[in-house]
Every structure is written in structure tokens, then in C-alpha cells.
Design a protein around this nucleic acid. Structure first.
Length: 364
DNA sequence: TAGGCCATCTGGTCCT
DNA sequence: AGGACCAGATGGCCTA
């Protein structure tokens, strides 16, 4: 591509101009890769321009220099004869000066558009970090991020509206509504709704199961292997890393790794960026916030009572409250005082007001 | 190799 | 007039 580019003298001027812009830009796209991409795309646009209907003509009629006073009468009939007659203002002659100005203006517009899209992507990245599933290595697609965010907002709204303790199953199902199967798997994995663990853990202290099947793994088949997120998929990326990680091997979730308070240093690896996903902990169907790295007795207590989907033996106190998935709080006897107080939590989080309301409810 | 996702270019439209 | 926004087109990359 580049070889062809530089072998074609007609393409060089634009490329040089473009490169000049890239040097001036302090955007991230000044990176080598992006520069290459830019050059390629400019070349492509040049080449594509010849096939576009108005690439060099449309939108250039606002040029007001003198040599542009002459309008092309031929346009009325179609210059090439077989060219389709075009609507709109008559085209003006593309003098070299106009061509040059057009290119400059187009280049500036391209730069703005690129910056705009980068800003948009940055915002989308921020959104990825606050939806319930965040993986630096396996990013949700744009559309899936928006869908998940919508579902998440809806789920939280429902909690506030109904004033009821949310059912975990319904919560997850709401989150996964409309998501693609891979994304559903990813979200389920991030929430640690591992079917195996789920089924083995939804036993009451007396051994009887409840709510089994309320979460249909048929509807949301969770497959560990599909999860390439480093914190929820063993074997992704570096197999040795994931396998050597005891928590990952057992499928510990984002909740566990970040909000579980274990302070597992493995999660500080570059590969794993501490999730900024909502610090929500589903505690007996009760959504709460968990504090990072807290060692206070209260927090320990709350931690003991907090629900961990995967219940790794030995890693967590095997208290009965660990096993509660149902929506009925009476079933477990867990009370709201077991929830980490809001003010002890992620006050830095952008959505503190939401949590404020949630906790106001859960603490009443 | 097809399909999904993405970045970029581009021209049109709207707004300030 | 210029910038923001939008949607279509295109090509690259990745994965099943």
C-alpha cells in the first residue's frame, strides 16, 4: 500500500500535507500506527474519490475567488455524456487553487472528525468502565456497550421504582436482555454466574435447594471457555497466567477480585486493569457496595456476608449467607446492616447519587 | 473465507 | 462561514 502510495507522485502532495497535520496534532492518533493508517486512508480516499460522484466537486461551491465565477455549463448536460445529470448548484471549475483549498479544508474537516470520533470512543470507553462488566482486554463492542448500559440503567431504575430488593436472576436477565450470546456469556462470567457454581451454591443451609432454575442457564448458557476476559476466563491470553491464578482458575469474579477485599496482588498485573465496573455486590438479592481493600471489622463482617457467586472453598468464609441467591431477604436472615455503608465505599464513583438512593433504600 | 467490528474519509445538513 | 453532527462508503483486522 505504502509502496504504491509513494510510487504514485500524484498522491504525494496530499499525503505530505496530511503528515504535517499529524505532526501538529497532539491527539493519540499521532502514534505511528495511526499515522500509517492515516496515510493509508488518505490514499484510499484519494483513490476512492475518483469513484465517488461528488468527491472533488460537491460542497466546493462556496469558494468565492474570482476564477470561480465561471460556472460549468456542461454540468447541465453531463460532462461525460453518460454521466447522470446532477441536481444542485452548478459546479465551478476546479482551478488548482480551488483544488488546493478544497484539500486543505477537507483535511481539516477530517482531522476534526477524527478527533470527534476519538472523543466519542473515549466516552464509550468510560461507559465500558461503569457498566457491570469491564475487561480491558476484551472490550465490549460499541453497540453491546450501549445495550448493556441501557439495560443497567433500566435495572437500577427498576430497583428504585419498585422499592423491592432485586432478584439476582432477574437482575442478570435484565442486564443481558438483547445482548448477543458472547456478550451475555461475558457479562454472566463477569458476574460470576457460572452455571456450575451457581447450581452448587444455591443450596440453603439445610441442604435444600431453592431458586434453582430461576436463572435459566439454558437461556444464558455460560461457557467459561468463551470468556476471554482475563479475570473471568481461564486460558485467555496467557494460559500460564490464567492457570496460575488460583482465583481465576476457579473463576472468581470481578466482585471477588476487586470488591471481595482479598487484595489479591495478581490482579494488579498490567493485563488486568482493576475494573471500574460498578462496585455493586449482590448480597442476598440486595445490591450493595463493597469497599476495596478494607480491613475494618465492620467491613470484614460485611464481607463475610456478601455474596460471592463462585464460592471458592477456603477463599471465603463458608457462611450460609454466602449461598443465598433468592430474592427473599428473610430466607437468609441477612439484614441491611451487613451491607457496607455507602459512605465507606466508592465515593469517587461517578454514579454516587444512584448508590446513595439505593443505599438509602437498603438501609431503611 | 465470510462476517463482525472498527477507523477513517466524505458530503450533506443543521446550527451558531 | 465554519464547525458539529450524521450517515454512507470503504478497507483493514480479527475470528470462527
Amino acid at each position: 500500500m505504502l509502496t504504491r502510495l509513494f510510487s504514485d507522485p500524484s498522491l504525494l502532495p496530499d499525503v505530505q500535507k496530511y503528515s504535517g497535520w499529524a505532526e501538529d496534532s497532539d491527539e493519540e492518533d499521532s502514534k505511528m500506527k495511526d499515522d500509517d493508517q492515516d496515510i493509508q486512508d488518505d490514499e484510499g480516499s484519494e483513490l476512492r474519490g475518483s469513484s465517488r460522484t461528488h468527491s472533488e466537486h460537491a460542497g466546493e461551491d462556496d469558494e468565492d475567488d474570482d476564477e470561480d465565477e465561471v460556472e460549468e455549463e456542461e454540468d447541465e448536460e453531463g460532462i461525460e455524456g453518460d454521466m447522470p445529470k446532477k441536481r444542485g448548484p452548478k459546479k465551478r471549475k476546479m482551478t488548482p487553487a480551488r483544488v488546493e483549498r478544497t484539500k486543505v479544508r477537507r483535511t481539516k474537516a477530517n482531522a476534526r472528525e477524527r478527533t470527534r470520533m476519538h472523543d466519542l470512543n473515549s466516552a464509550l470507553d468510560n461507559l465500558r468502565k461503569v457498566v457491570p462488566c469491564y475487561s480491558k482486554t476484551q472490550k465490549l463492542s460499541k453497540i453491546e456497550t450501549l445495550r448493556l448500559a441501557k439495560n443497567y440503567i433500566w435495572a437500577l431504575s427498576e430497583i428504585l421504582r419498585s422499592g423491592k430488593r432485586p432478584d439476582v436472576v432477574a437482575y442478570v436477565q435484565t442486564l443481558c436482555k438483547g445482548l448477543s450470546q458472547p456478550t451475555t456469556n461475558l457479562v454472566a462470567g463477569c458476574l460470576q454466574l457460572n452455571s456450575r457454581n451457581f447450581l452448587t451454591e444455591q443450596q440453603c443451609p439445610d441442604g435444600s435447594r431453592y431458586a434453582s432454575g430461576s436463572f435459566s442457564m439454558h437461556s444464558y448458557p455460560y461457557q467459561c471457555a468463551r470468556l476471554s476476559s482475563p479475570h473471568c476466563q481461564p486460558g485467555s491470553g496467557s494460559a500460564s497466567n490464567s492457570n496460575s491464578h488460583p482465583l481465576r482458575t476457579h473463576g472468581y469474579s470481578t466482585y471477588d477480585s476487586v470488591y471481595g477485599g482479598s487484595g489479591s496482588p495478581e490482579y494488579n498485573s498490567p493485563e488486568y486493569e482493576a475494573p471500574l465496573s460498578p462496585p455493586l455486590c449482590v448480597n442476598n438479592g440486595n445490591f450493595s457496595l463493597k469497599q476495596q481493600g478494607s480491613a475494618s471489622p465492620e467491613n470484614e463482617k460485611a464481607y463475610h456476608y456478601s455474596m460471592h457467586y463462585s464460592g471458592l472453598p477456603g477463599s471465603r468464609p463458608p457462611g450460609p449467607h454466602n449461598l443465598v441467591f433468592g430474592s427473599s431477604g428473610a430466607r437468609s436472615g441477612i439484614h441491611s446492616e451487613n451491607v457496607v455503608p455507602y459512605h465507606d465505599m466508592h465515593l469517587h464513583h461517578e454514579r454516587a447519587p444512584v448508590y446513595d438512593e439505593l443505599n438509602a433504600f437498603f438501609h431503611n
